[in-house]
Amino acid sequence: MKEFMLLFRFPQSNIDPSKIPPAEFQALAKKWQDWAGGIAAQGRMASNGNRLALEGKVLKPGGVITDGPFVEIREMLGSFIVVKADSLEEATTLAHGCPALDSNGTVEIRPIIG
């Protein structure tokens, strides 16, 4: 089986995640966990990746550094997982139901080559 990386991207928003009510935040976390658990239950999870914090910096040509949030980028990278599948199509099938899609985000599926 080959490995594929699923990259989650979200539309840039101005909502401060620390202001999301705890119950809502928990429900969202549960959604992600249940979705990832479903992939793991099929024995297809290679790595549950790393979660990325929301703050960060962007380095541009000429040594220009901007702080996040990344106002000039329409979408930001959320996090990633690595799954096992026989083909790109199969990996894409695994991505269905991803909670990122519920918040207008996207899932990018890329084969890992070495």
Partner: peptide
């Protein structure tokens, strides 16, 4: 059952086995 489901989700990440997958689905 939400707690059990969450724990099975985590267990699958560390230790996949068909029986854990089945138990997880029952908890789901």
């Amino acid at each position: 059952w939400e707690n059990i489901l969450s724990l099975y989700n985590q267990l699958l990440m560390v230790n996949y086995s068909p029986s854990v997958a089945l138990n997880r689905t029952f908890a789901l």
